[in-house]
Structures are given as C-alpha cells and as structure tokens.
Nucleic acid binder design. Structure first.
Length: 567
RNA sequence: CGGGGCGUAGCGCAGCCUGGUAGCGCACCUGCCUUGGGAGCAGGAGGCCGGAGGUUCGAAUCCUCUCGCCCCGACCA
C-alpha cells in the first residue's frame, strides 16, 4: 500500500477523549476513528490488523474442528423470550422495533439463534458433536463505554458454540477450545493468564477467562503459587483471617452517629479503623432479600455470594428498608443474614442500628447476632492467602480477551434443542460457548507492545510487515530503487507499506515509529553515498546497512524467525 | 442511573470570571527554500463559539433548558 494514496491520518497530539495508551495510539497512528461513544470506524491500518487477527483465529478454530457460520445481528424478541433472557438481560440489550412494530434486539451474543438452529436441524446423536463459530459484530449498550476498542458498544467477537451428546463429551470440546485459545494468544505473542471465572449472564457451570496482563486492565486476577492456580479475584478462595482482635467482648451499646453513613465517616466519628466496622449490604435475589455482612475494609464479591447460597440472581438492593444509607445492620434484622468469615473475627465492632442516626458499638459475632451462613464472600485483595493451600495470593490486573463456558443444558432445555440417542431417547444437547473479543485483543496487544514513540506490533498482528521509507522523493535514483524494492517485496508475498509521500525525513520517521511496523526499510542518502539501504527492527533488536539486493533475504529471515518464535 | 468536567477552525487549546468586530500552535493552500528525526521565510483560506430559548442597545462570555463527549462511582445500607 502506498501511503500517498491511502487514508492514514496520523496525529501529532493525543486525542482529548482518550485515557489509556492503546486508545491514544490507535487513534494517533490512524487505525481507528470514533463515530459515537463506543462506536468506531476501522481505517485501513485498523482493518488490516483486525484481518490478521481474524485469519489467525480462523486457522486455530479450523484446527480445533470448528465450522464457520454467520448469524444475524438483528434478532427477533421471541427468540429471547424463549430463553428467558429478554427480561433478564437488562439495559445492555438494545431493543428496537421495525415498521410493523415487531420487536427486535441487537445481538449482544448468539446463544439463542444458534440453539434454535440446532434445535431445528439436529435430530440424531449421529449428527453430533458439532462446534460452530462466527466472527461477527455484537452490540452491547454498555453503561459506560470507555478505553476505545477495549470497552466498545459495537465490537467484533469470535464466538463459538459446541454441541454434544453428554457432559463428558462436552468437557472434551471445552478442553479443545481451551487449548485453541492458548495457542491463539501464544501465537499473537501476548503475556496472558488463564483464570477461573464467574459465568455472569451467560450462565453455566464452569468458565475460564483469558486475561492479558496489563496494569490498565479492568479485571483483577489472583494467582496462588502454592496451588499453581489463578482466579478472577472475585472468585479466588480467600483463607479465613488467622488473627483475632485483642481484648474481650464488651456489652453492646447504641450510640448516636448522626449523618455518618459511609464506612469512613463512621470510622472517623467513632475514632475506629474501617476493619472494626461491619459493612452490611442488602442483596436482592430470586429468593428474596438477604443481608450480606463483610468487614469494613473488604469488598463483597457477588459471584461468591451467589455461589455460596446457590443463587442465580443477586444484585444490590436499593431502598428496601426506608433507612438512610449506611445505617442498616445485622442485629435484630428480619432478612436472613449471610456473613463473611472476616466478620466473625471482629471484636467489639460497629454495626448500623437499623434506626436513623444510630450505630451499635461493641458488637460481637455469635454474642450479638448470628448469620444463617458464614462463608468466604469477599474479593481477594493484596495480602490475602489462598483459601485452599494458605499460601499468599499475588494480585495483578488483566484485560479479559477471551472466555470459555460450559453451559450444560441451560439453553437447550428451555428451548427444547433435543436429539434422539442410540436408544431412541430424547435428550437435550450439552452445550459450551467460547468467545474472543477481536477489537479488545488488538487493544490489549497495543497495551503490551508499545514504547514512547508508538506501537511495536508483533509480526503476528502487524497490518504490514515492512515499512518502506523513501526519504527523498525528488531524487529519481532513490525513487526508482524504492519502487523496485516495493514491487519485488510484493511479488515475494511480503506486506509492505510504502511511504512515498513528499514529506521531510523527520515526519516519515516519526510516523513510522508511531505506526510501529516490525521492520523499517529506509532508502536515503546512505544509498547515494555508499550504495546501502538500512533495515531496522521496531523493537530495536537490530539495525543494519546493506546493499539493496540483500534486503529481501534479511527481511525474510527476520519474519520467519519471528513466525517460529510464536508458531 | 448518581457525582464531576468539557463542547470555540481538521487536531490540541486560549478567550468566558469583569458582555463591546473571535484568537494561538499544529495541520491545510500558494510561492521560495530545505531533505537521515515532526525545518525556515512570505502570503492565504478556514468558525451559526454544540443546539434552543431568555436577559441586554449589544452574548462565545450572564441565566434557563437541551444534546453530545470524557472522568469517577457496586458498596460503603
């Protein structure tokens, strides 16, 4: 591609609305442009990068035995009522009506359509197993789209769905996809971690997330070096605190705390540490409200809460008590109380008095109140130990680029996607689903691969392998050399971006660094003076001058070596 | 959805408090000059100051409403 005829609008300054590095660089280097909040146009470089990733993903999907299809973005309401998710999905599901007032939604995911397809087309166990996949647009009306491609509303996703005759077979499909995902992210060249995860709105029994390690990641992950396991921090088992606070239990006493509502305010008013305050949260569930109690310095994990009570739905409830904020508590509470292990270790703590303006002090677990369930309910945090082996957990941040789920019969049962087994019995198919965020993976790659000057694409995703930079377009000798190198490389199947613009050298070098192709082939005065061209790796691993006829050999050597490193 | 911030030329910003002919840098166009790290000189073009209403002789500036964008927010019950 010749830059003089392409649309590669690079920017000298960071765009105002970008916060994270990948967003800034993808805009500045001319890969994407925003159309609306969370909605982007892919410019030529962005589209080529996405194309590289899609090709790689397709290759691994095919290798894993998955078959490509394409399902619609716009889907009828009935399909979503049949799975029960029309009501359940909430505002993220963008709903619309056609001219006949028929209701539709923009697909945030495709379980319904694919299950319906299998219901209609698969009758016999002989047609299974099956793994179908697509790479297609999804739409989720996020509360807060942000960070460019990282959390967009409209985005590309590779989603795959497996259909099997039994749990055991489904587990095999899960393993196959899990391995394919490992290969994909390894081939891209990313540092990532696979963590056990919650199943969220998708549902199901077992799930792993593929997390690209980056300080800007929105997810917290916890790894235990004892067990060699990793979890999303909201699921990581946390050991019971070993210490007990000093002193002996005192009789509880009601004190006036006025407007103090937050943990911090209450702590200040009473001159105590947050650890001594019991945080009570009212949780609405499908079995009615529960009062969850955790120590004031800890954060409740809703996934853990759901798991420990065997619940499907749980969200923070507002305004069920009519009490001002922060003044609810477990003592004399009508709702069932569920407490984190940390609560039992709090000696002479503080709890809301269920009465405006008052808190109880000297509250002690077992003496003053008791929980129906005592469990591990909080988000793992720095300093925690593993609940399985008691070794310390190490926390880091990740960008969730892929997730795999065992779905069981969550969709096939209600939607009656059944087959006949060898004995002629009707059985629901056992399903799994597997997603990779395409745009998010591109963004995550930039988060990991950049320097002060710009992006440093790995060969695997680079929109072009080589940036051919012609420094002086007025010297016909240089132009004809660059032109012939361009044609020669193209003929050898090398992707080349040719900077043939009438710009000064400084501009071209800066743009080349910003765009970040793996190799730069520079034609300039060194050729006039010594008959040499320059090859430089963007990652600064080498820079060499050589006669032009050696260039393509060197380029091929570099590319195949990189390919092997990650292949 | 709650809290905060910002909308002025393609991009990044100043001007607003204290109303009086709309500015700067980069980019863009023309010419000269320059070509291995975002050159220089000269000339030029480009704005319903997000939108609507109001106050005023007069509004980018003050007031009201609205739309868009960005940041923080489970909680601290």
């Amino acid at each position: 591609m010749k830059m003089s005829r392409a649309l590669i609008p690079t920017l000298r300054e960071d765009p105002k609305d970008a916060e994270v590095i990948s967003h800034k660089l993808l805009v500045r280097a001319g890969f994407i442009r925003k159309v609306a909040a969370g909605i982007y146009t892919m410019l030529p470089l962005g589209l080529r990068t996405v194309g590289k990733l899609m090709a790689l993903v397709r290759e691994e999907m095919e290798r894993a035995g998955a078959i490509e299809i394409q399902m619609p973005l716009v889907q009828p309401k009935e399909l979503w009522t049949s799975s029960g998710r029309w009501e359940l999905y909430g505002k993220e599901l963008l709903r619309l009506k056609d001219r006949k007032d028929q209701e539709f939604c923009l697909a945030p995911t495709h379980e319904e359509v694919v299950t319906e397809l299998i219901k209609n087309e698969v009758r016999s166990y002989r047609q299974l197993p099956l793994i179908l996949y697509q790479i297609h647009t999804k739409f989720r009306d996020e509360i807060r789209p942000r960070f460019g491609l990282m959390r967009a509303r409209e985005f590309l996703m590779k989603d795959a769905y497996s259909f099997d005759v039994s749990e055991a077979c489904s587990m095999q499909a899960y393993q196959t996809m899990y391995s394919a995902y490992e290969r994909i992210f390894r081939r891209i060249g990313l540092k990532f971690e696979v963590v056990e995860a919650d199943t969220g709105t998708i549902g199901g029994s077992l799930s792993h997330e593929f997390q690209v390690l980056a300080p800007t990641g929105e997810d917290k992950i916890a790894r235990c070096n004892g067990c060699k396991k990793a979890w999303n921090a909201e699921l990581a088992p946390v050991a019971k605190p070993r210490f007990v606070m000093p002193g002996s239990p005192l009789p509880k006493e009601k004190v006036k705390t006025g407007d103090a509502a937050t943990i911090e305010e209450v702590a200040v008013v009473l001159g105590l540490q947050p650890e001594q305050i019991l945080k009570s949260l009212l949780i609405q569930t499908e079995r009615g409200p529960y009062l969850a109690v955790v120590r004031g310095d800890r954060i409740l994990s809703l996934p853990k809460f759901k798991r420990s009570l065997g619940l499907v739905e749980a969200e923070l409830a507002q305004d069920l008590t009519g009490l001002p904020e922060g003044q609810i508590g477990p003592i004399g509470q009508a709702w069932p109380v569920v407490a984190d292990y940390s609560v039992a270790g709090v000696q002479n703590g503080v709890a809301g008095a269920n009465e405006p303006g008052y808190h109880w002090v000297n509250v002690n677990y077992a003496l003053d109140f008791e929980a129906q369930t005592l469990a591990d309910l909080t988000l793992a945090q720095e300093g925690d130990c593993c609940g399985v082996c008691q070794e310390p957990l190490s926390l880091s941040r990740g960008i969730e680029v892929g997730q795999v789920f065992c779905l069981g019969t969550k969709y096939s049962k209600p939607m009656e996607a059944v087959f006949l087994d060898a004995d002629g019995n009707k059985k629901p198919t056992v399903m799994g689903c597997y997603g990779i965020g395409i745009g998010r993976t591109v963004a995550a790659t930039v988060e990991q691969c950049h320097d002060d000057q710009g992006i440093r694409w790995p060969v695997s995703l680079a929109p072009f392998a080589v940036h051919l930079v012609l420094l002086d377009t007025r010297q016909s000798e240089l132009v004809s050399l660059a032109d012939s190198l361009y044609s020669a490389l193209l003929a050898q199947g090398v992707d080349v971006l040719y900077d043939d613009r009438e710009e000064r050298p400084g501009v071209k070098f800066h743009d080349a660094d910003l765009i970040g192709l793996p190799l730069r082939l520079t034609i300039g005065k060194k050729y006039k003076e010594k008959g040499l061209v320059e090859i430089k790796a963007r990652d600064a691993s080498f820079m060499e001058d050589m006669p032009p006829e050696d260039a393509s050999k060197r380029i091929h050597a570099f590319l195949s070596q990189q390919g092997m490193a990650n292949g």
